[in-house]
Design a binder for these strands. Structure first.
Length: 260
DNA sequence: ATGACAAACTTTGTTTGA
């Protein structure tokens, strides 16, 4: 089965591209970020007509995440636990039946964190610690899960065109890398790197400065797998051609294939 | 140092993103 993550940068502006992509790529489960819509404004019916079940966790104007699936979920949970004051819609998780038993899919839009000298950066770091707690709890139960989404983390210098330009940026700071490594050290597998050792494979290109044409990108959309999920991993690839469609998102889908 | 592009709301300017 195919599980995909894609930051669509606005569902209302991207609905045509999304339907075209669902038709062509046909993921079994799709994690969407930055839907930038409240739940009532999400164009669910067009997606349902294509045979997908739709679950959203929206917000007015920005953020917002959604889970699309060919099979109905067993259970859906909205929001990342650990901070009752956090009103930003950045996390939704679902449990889905497969031939290999139930799997949990966590769809996340991790805070960007810039500018780093504002409250936005500590919010990012505390959000990463809450995500760590979420993962640790499920690892202790030996659950089969994937955390898929826009992590807003450039893992290494091989995942960015110009590392020097990103020094000090919230996506590339040592403390950000430390928190990302903490997640990996729990025993999670970063699917793309487990499958593909080539440097400079990107999932985001800025709209500005001809970044796509010059391949000035960054790899910030990731799939982190629990050991039980990593055992099922068949492959992982980035569908970068979607960036060249009319009116594209600045992110492209990242897809994992699982042997179930 | 920063914001050349895009999306959505606060709508003919502003906020946010990366």
């Amino acid at each position: 089965m195919k599980i995909a993550t894609w930051n669509v940068n606005g569902i209302k502006a991207r609905i045509d591209n999304l339907c075209k992509w669902l038709e062509e790529s046909s993921p079994d489960i799709a994690c969407l970020q930055e839907i930038k819509s409240v739940d009532e404004g999400f164009p669910a019916s067009r997606i349902e007509e294509m045979g997908y079940h739709v679950e959203t966790h929206g917000q007015k104007g920005f953020n917002g995440v959604a889970l699309l699936s060919k099979v109905d979920p067993i259970e859906i949970s909205r929001g990342l636990p650990g901070d009752d004051q956090d009103v930003q819609s950045r996390f939704i998780s679902g449990i889905y039946p497969t031939n290999s038993g139930p799997i949990t899919v966590g769809c996340l839009y991790l805070p960007n964190g810039n500018p780093v000298n504002t409250e936005k950066y500590p919010y990012k770091i505390s959000w990463m610690r809450r995500l760590n707690t979420w993962a640790k709890q499920r690892l202790s139960l030996e659950q089969t899960f994937v955390l898929a989404g826009d992590f807003n983390v450039i893992p290494t210098s091989e995942d960015v065109h110009d590392p020097a330009a990103w020094q000090g940026d919230a996506l590339f700071r040592p403390e950000t890398h430390r928190e990302f490594q903490e997640l990996l050290h729990l025993g999670l597998t970063e699917a793309f790197r487990a499958c593909d050792s080539r440097p400079h494979q990107y999932s985001f290109w800025d709209y500005q400065r001809g970044a796509r044409q010059q391949n000035h990108g960054i790899r910030i959309d990731h799939c982190l797998l629990s050991p039980q999920m990593a055992d099922l991993l068949h492959s992982c690839h980035i569908e970068s051609y979607v960036r060249d469609w009319e009116r594209p998102s600045d992110h492209v889908p990242v897809v994992i294939k699982i042997d179930t």
